[in-house]
Structures are given as structure tokens and as C-alpha cells.
């Protein structure tokens, strides 16, 4: 397996009146071709910022301070506007949060598909079969092409957005909270379809979410993000069965399980970091029930957990484990 996306020392912040607030700190990640990679974090953990930075679509006041995002051998952050535009939808694509409002309200769906072909120099007549096959994949009838967005349900609009993003068969698909605002049944259907399409077409998928059930349902690989840093990442089974970071451990404990006894142990309390105060030690210290003095002194680095596929950021592993 070769690496399709590599993030190196990425630093992202938001410019404000009192200087830049750093959100993403020295972020490093490698994603292999053909996998579904899930990145999860609480609201405000910087995951959407990360997704936009990776796609180089971050808008002011968001600022990419340094780092590289190597996709297909090229640094996305160094591409010109023109080069960036050309790879979008063709090589890599981005399905945004609130995808339900992502369609132009005054244009028919079919014409919006044709706009994508026009933008990338594809022949509109010859490309109609591609629309048919991609609509088929997301289980939409071709009739939607004659509809305006307001005539479709939320789920159908979501499927339309996914179809539009996939119509030119990109190699890397970034989904930022792909099912926000949909009810659980529609969400489940759409996720199952996304996973099926991914397995069929073999593209790489990066899913950003705050929903642990979604995360564990579809991902092959999982990274947990807290305060703009990875706390732990690895294959789904390792992450699910034997977490090595307190954050991941407590999050998993917070999930209710049918049939299991009620969990009455240590709980995750407090609110996520607001980035206003930086401490030189562990970012999670304010909420970690297992922290000791040593956590305040040194900033933990990622350490290998299980083989070469698993890393965690905690100096007290495995001592904290109850």
C-alpha cells in the first residue's frame, strides 16, 4: 500500500485582534491508499479547520502558518489557485458540512452537474452516462436531474451532493461531517452507501466527524483529535478494543451499550480546550482524571503502541489504566 496523503508539521491558526490563535499544532499524519480514515473530535477540537486546511480551502481569518500536505506527490498548500482548481473534483473532492445547503437554489440539478463538466473541460454530451452511473451508485433516480434543490428531501440533497462530488472519480474524498442534520435512519442508509461505493471504486476517504458511532461504523483507521493534536490513532480494532490514551478510553466508556451493565466508573467531564491558554504540558491535562505531576512538565509526543500501526500521546500509558 502506498501513501496517498501525508500531512507534515501542519500549523493552522485563526487571526484575531490579539494575534493568531493556534488551532492545529504540528500535525502529522499519513493516510494509505484505499482506506477509510476517520478523524474524530469534540466540537472545537479543530477537526473542520483541519479538513479545510488539507483541502486548502480555509478562508480568512483562518491561516495556514506552516506545514505540507502532500497529495499525489504534490504539496497542495503550494499549488497555485489555478492548479488547485484543476485538481478539485478531478483528483480530490470535499463534501462539506451542511451539505444540504450546498446546491445552488436557482438551478436544476442536471445543469449543476454540467457546470462541473464545463469547469473541467469535459464534453457535456459524453459525460451524461457518468451522471447516470454516479446517481445509480447513490441510489437516486435520474429524475432528480430535472428538479431544483428545494424540491428534494434533505437526504436526497445529501446524496446529490455526494454524487456531484464523485462524478469525476476522484482518488481522495474528504467528508466533513457528512450527515449533519439528517435523521438517524437516513444517516445510516447514506453511510452504508458511502462505504459500499468506496469499496467498489477503491478511492481513499477521509471522514471528519464528532459522532463516535459513525466513526466506528465506517472507518478502517481512526484518529482522535483533541485541541488540534492527535491523541491516539490506529486501526479500528485496536482503537475500539484496547485504547491506550485516556481520552479515547473515556469516550468509548461514554457510549451506552445494549445489554451491558451500566458504567459507573470514571467519567469524562469538563469542556474542550478554548485555545486561549497554552500549557507546555499535556493538552488534555485539565480534563484527565489520571493526570499526575509529570503531565504538567513535558509535552507528550506520539509513541508507538501496537506495532507500526498504532500511536498514542500520553506519558502515563499504561500506568493509568484501571
Amino acid at each position: 500500500m502506498s501513501t496517498i496523503l501525508e500531512i507534515r508539521n501542519l500549523n493552522v491558526g485563526y487571526e484575531g485582534e490579539n494575534g493568531t490563535t493556534k488551532i492545529i499544532n504540528n500535525f502529522n499524519l499519513k493516510i494509505e491508499e484505499g482506506v477509510i480514515f476517520g478523524i474524530a473530535g469534540e466540537s472545537g477540537s479543530g477537526k473542520s479547520t483541519l479538513a479545510q486546511a488539507i483541502y486548502n480551502s480555509l478562508r480568512y481569518p483562518g491561516i495556514i502558518e506552516s506545514g505540507e500536505v502532500i497529495f499525489d506527490g504534490k504539496d497542495i498548500l503550494k499549488l497555485s489557485k489555478r492548479e488547485l482548481r484543476r485538481i478539485r473534483a478531478v483528483d480530490t473532492t470535499f463534501i462539506p458540512q451542511a451539505a444540504m445547503n450546498a446546491l445552488n437554489p436557482v438551478k436544476r440539478i442536471g445543469d449543476q452537474f454540467n457546470d462541473v463538466f464545463e469547469a473541467h473541460g469535459e464534453d457535456i454530451e459524453e459525460s451524461q452516462s457518468r451522471i447516470q452511473s454516479v446517481l445509480n451508485m447513490v441510489r437516486l433516480s435520474p429524475e432528480v436531474l430535472h428538479s431544483y434543490p428545494h424540491e428534494l428531501s434533505g437526504g436526497m440533497r445529501q446524496r446529490t451532493v455526494i454524487a456531484m462530488a464523485l462524478v469525476l472519480s476522484p482518488k481522495l474524498v474528504i467528508l466533513d461531517e457528512p450527515t449533519t442534520g439528517l435523521d438517524v435512519l437516513v444517516e445510516h442508509d447514506i453511510l452504508r452507501d458511502i462505504k459500499r461505493i468506496q469499496r467498489q471504486k477503491g478511492f481513499t476517504m477521509l471522514v471528519i466527524t464528532h459522532d463516535l458511532s459513525i466513526l466506528y461504523q465506517i472507518s478502517d483507521w481512526i484518529a482522535m483529535v483533541y485541541a488540534g493534536e492527535i491523541t491516539e490513532y490506529g486501526k479500528r480494532e485496536d482503537m475500539l478494543n484496547s485504547p491506550l490514551h485516556p481520552y479515547n478510553y473515556l469516550l468509548l466508556k461514554s457510549l451506552p451499550r445494549i445489554g451491558a451493565e451500566r458504567y459507573d466508573g470514571i467519567k469524562l467531564i469538563g469542556a474542550p480546550s478554548n485555545y486561549s491558554e497554552t500549557n507546555k504540558g499535556c493538552q488534555f491535562i485539565t480534563r484527565c482524571p489520571f493526570s499526575k505531576n509529570e503531565c504538567q512538565i513535558t509535552h507528550p509526543e506520539l509513541e508507538a503502541g501496537y506495532g507500526n500501526d498504532h500511536y498514542y500521546r500520553c506519558v502515563r500509558t499504561p500506568d493509568w489504566k484501571p
Binding site: 480551502s57 473532492t93 470535499f94 457546470d115 462541473v116
Partner: peptide, 13 residues
């Protein structure tokens, strides 16, 4: 708006 953001994400001219 979201639809302008998405059209840029799709690499529209």
C-alpha cells in the same frame, strides 16, 4: 454561502 463554497470545492471556474 454554502453553495458558493461547494462550487469552489468542485473546482468551478
Amino acid at each position: 454561502s454554502d453553495y458558493i463554497g461547494f462550487s469552489q470545492n468542485l473546482g468551478l471556474k
